[in-house]
Amino acid sequence: MLQFESVSKTYRNGFTALEAISLRIDPGERVAIVGSSGCGKSTLLRLAAGLTFPSSGRVLVYGKPVIRPEPRVGFLFQEPRLMPWLSVDDNVAFGLRGPARQRRDLVRSALLRVGLSNCGDYYPKQLSGGMAQRVAIARALASAPRLILLDEPFSALDAIRRAELQDHFLQLWESDQLSTLIVTHDVEEAIVLADRILVMQPHPGRIIEELLVDLPLDDRRESPAFEGLKKRLIHSLRQADHRSASAIHPSAATLSASALQG
């Protein structure tokens, strides 16, 4: 479905955001990437989306190198990115094709899913941050993608809404077998939503660890293994930060890196 083959990304200013990233997402799989702020998570998703291109290595979707955004790939951005001149309805319909009637139905059901069916006539300036992000979620869902890329999609929501939408996404995956790559700094979210969690280390961004979440899908938060997994993830994130901090002193970095691998 989605494949990175030792992908590196160096920005034009010489900053290397990602280094030698390899990963693979199979159809219907849910993968989360956790990493601290600035470690290159958004960059990675933009590469997967075809919004930017690798400096070296290859990004493949359906086995073909990505040269432009794929129609079957949806992107839920870190910010709502609503068109301020369009009503909520028109924002959700943005980019939908097909007869007007069908589009209207898609919009209605997408808004219903995020609990905003009464707000179709609102303009973005009349929405709270959380509402705006839900509209963005509705827009991403309405186009029925096969692979969805989520960039910290729920960070603007209150805890209850967040849990609600997370559960909602889980239902969606069960029914649609939607493949997912979600990026987040919220370890609980990663555990709840993903089957597999990749831990990233900043400066430059690399994947340093992979964790399988072999828990039943519903109510993972209540599962006894949840806390244990969470501790482990937090521990690896700390270590990732520590390693990147010591990367300023190359010898120390090699040392700790080999220590970790050993």
Binding site: A49, R68, P69, M83, F94
Partner: peptide
């Protein structure tokens, strides 16, 4: 750029980007 990217993800061609994002945003 952020808004333009929404259009690119929706598979817009150049003309659609201009008509549906650039022009309204530049109004």
């Amino acid at each position: 750029r952020k808004l333009v990217e929404v259009g690119r993800m929706a598979g817009f061609d150049r003309f659609q980007l201009v008509r549906r994002i650039l022009i309204p945003a530049a109004l």
